[in-house]
Design a protein around this nucleic acid. Structure first.
Lengths: 199, 199, 199, 199
DNA sequence: AATGAATGAGCCTTCATTCAT
DNA sequence: AATGAATGAAGGCTCATTCAT
């Protein structure tokens, strides 16, 4: 009956909607979804609380939009890297570069990643989007392999494993949690492990 | 000013405290920390809402206790496995067994793991406990290696990487999220990767 | 300070104002005054939310206009019936016709009547208009009696009583609420009661 | 899942619940349902806003309870009057007494009646309760007639008509809206009309 | 005259925590 | 130790009304 959310067409409105998403992005990063209230989001975005509900169905809707922004932020550099791959793949040199690249992506988005990912367990839509993100990355890599004529057995499983390793490693690396770990050694180990996987 | 939280010495009280923790454990598993309220915990535990604050400082305090229980539940089977290792280690056969074992542990505790882990990003103490958990597992394995005279270069880093891989894989395996993945193949791939790591 | 509410003189504007009133009329009928919001009224009228406040002081002002329309809708057929009365009145045949006529009027306007009348208890102006409506009907009938030379003792009281009876009956008849009531019998009873009143 | 409303068994609690209902009763009477907010109800009842939701599901639930109280208040004196009727009914003297009695009931409850009745058009449960109220009164009178061996054709319809007339008249009488009406004359007219009905 | 985005007060409701018993 | 009623701050959301364009 209600629930019609303005779909802003004018640039001014889009700008405002983006401001709200950005405010949500920041606040979710800083204090998490449950630590953020809509008034705060509005304030940070420089708008009134009311208008937030002009652009979004509810608080969770902001979350979903933030999530989408996040996903784009993650996918974009990955696509860029893959686009550059033209000739035959030299995994020995490619993988270490990739690892560094993924590390960079993670560094930029750690906080929001944590905030968003922590909701996957209770919010099915959020969970689905994360799954989809993995699917898209996997697919993109598969496509690249095809395009370059690279034949790899169980490619999908390998890619997934590589992604998992990279993700876990990035997390560890960024938080630098364990003092007894030499993260440089760990990084090279990760690279080598993935290289072995694709050899 | 604030009266201390009772440290129950009598068995009756300890039992009651445990009931509350168990109720929290269940509810956090089922609907997450934010989906649970203290009244519900009390009800599930069969106690009054008031007494909850006799045993715990606040809701978060219950969380911490639940987390500790969880950690014990995870550590216990790992310790057991390691205790059984007596002779020289045959990684080729050991690792696959380990993988299965870890999978089992995860299967039992997935929900609560998700619920608790999702709080690590906003709660420093929770985060610390998860880090500590990894530390303890790492240490235990290192100790075992020492005891058995196994010499491995960069053991700590390798163990960590193996843990990360296992954890990520377990998560994937349990949720069976991607239909294009053959999880049996993936499992064997995980085993082999870890074996290679320690060879 | 408050700028006057436009009194539209141009036909275009009058048309627009009427559209808004009509939209209010419909929506109040459908979901009541409190179930309707101004945005919805504007949308239904095909105008912007802002302009509503160009034609009306506030939401309540629309209500008052709707009420006026309603009153006209009720009065018009009553006037028409009375206009037709030319010769000496044969109550025996007139009253049953009247009853049917009033029933018809009610049937057409039940919903809006309910919506509007329910506000009389909290809104003095609404209440006053309903009183005035009764006054006007009473006066019109009195006038007719005079014109036709009909002499009736306590005419005003009788007319009022007849109106009350008719109104209450119509309400009952339309909603058909009580299954144990034979509404045809009731209708004839009403007619007879009123006939007796004027005999 | 939630929605469990305390069913107070202790007198203290019942008292408090009644206080809230009374506060609602008063406020709904004074400013109507929509003019009342829960905070106000709580304040008037001398309790916190929170506890209101310990006793009632939501604001509307208070309304329903108020309505039930109102219904009892209306039924009680009617039952009392009927109970007194023992011998053969002398409608000539009974009806005028009845009229006065109903007038008294209405005088006491006008405001709340208005407030509650105005909600019947948008709230099905409220509507149903008002219908039921009429049903109960009708039934009670029918029973009395039976008990006293009074045989009346179309008794149900007559009773309904009488109720309607009485109700409408009471409303008119209490508000004394039309200055040109002699309400004493009207009252006697009402009595006589009803007497005629049952003769 | 007209638009519709924007405002912000206000409402209902929840829930961690306290307190009288 | 225990109860569970009570508190009240806080949150999400709505909507009559205003304002920049």
């Amino acid at each position: 009956m209600k629930s019609e959310v303005r779909q802003p067409r004018q640039s001014r409105s889009i700008e405002k909607k983006n401001k709200i998403i950005l405010a949500g992005y920041e606040l979710f990063s800083e204090v998490g979804y449950y630590g953020t209230n809509t008034a705060e989001i509005a304030k940070r975005a420089g708008v009134s609380t009311g208008i937030v509900y002009g652009y979004f169905q509810d608080k969770r809707d902001i979350l979903i939009c933030v999530l989408e922004i996040y996903i784009d932020k993650v996918l974009e550099p990955i696509y860029k890297i893959l686009d550059k791959l033209l000739g035959p793949i030299a995994f020995d040199t490619l993988i270490p570069k990739m690892v560094d690249e993924v590390l960079k992506i993670h560094k930029k988005n750690t906080k929001i990643h944590e905030a968003l990912h922590s909701l996957a367990s209770t919010d099915e839509a959020v969970n689905a989007k994360f799954i989809q993100l993995e699917d898209r990355i996997t697919q993109e890599i598969i496509n690249k392999f095809c395009a370059l004529g690279v034949q790899i057995e169980n490619a999908q499983e390998k890619i997934h494993l590589a992604m998992n390793i990279l993700q876990a490693f990035s997390h560890e690396y960024i938080f630098d949690k364990h003092e007894y770990i030499d993260y440089i050694v760990l990084r090279d180990m990760v690279s080598q492990t993935i290289i072995n996987l694709f050899k």
